[in-house]
Amino acid sequence: MIDIAVIDYGMGNLRSVSKALEHVAPDAQVLVTSDPHAVMQAQRVVFPGQGAMPDCMREMEARGLHQAIMEAAQTKPFLGICIGMQMLFDHSEEGNVAGLGLFPGNVLRFPHEAMVSASGEKLKVPHMGWNEVYQAEPHPLWAGIADGARFYFVHSYYCQPATPDYIAGTTNYPFPFTSAVARDNIFAVQFHPEKSAAAGLALLGNFVRWDIGA
């Protein structure tokens, strides 16, 4: 029995994700895998992503994971992280590539001309560091986490949903952007919960306990 599958398509460090899951669920079997059958058999699926979205999409497809990811995203607790959130949308400006289309909307680059703070300070891209996440609505994955808690971000592109229906969290840099989305059994975050100290571990703990039938 695989409790949690962390989908590995060859893009970077998944050790942090698996170690953080093992930390919050010491009794769970956490498997980092690129095997579509293992993804289909798992009770819960974590879909991380690092680097550039076109590379992530290509490597994911090359490993034959598309169908297993779509099936998991429709049936069981599913957590997208960083590029793993961006890949759930229709399209990304990064490399002009199509995503999986599970959320309507696009992935856009932080526009150079907008990157100035209220006090006139230049804002750097990538958006790197700890920023506040404002919860749009109560959700089991926000349980016990303060509204406005800081999480660790590192990204140059952000998701812009076509409708506000699925927005679960927003963050300001300098304008409000969508830092979390939720729909049925899917929750996806732009930040890295596995690198976000206590707040991140709380979110991962909520995910491993999330009962989508409740």
């Binding site: 703070s117 804002l123 958006h127 560091g129 700890w130 920023n131 506040e132 406005g148 800081r150 971000f153 963050t171 300001n172 840099y173 300098p174």
Partner: peptide, 8 residues
């Protein structure tokens, strides 16, 4: 409030 400065 927005991005925090970091101590490393």
């Amino acid at each position: 409030m927005s991005l925090a400065k970091r101590i490393i």
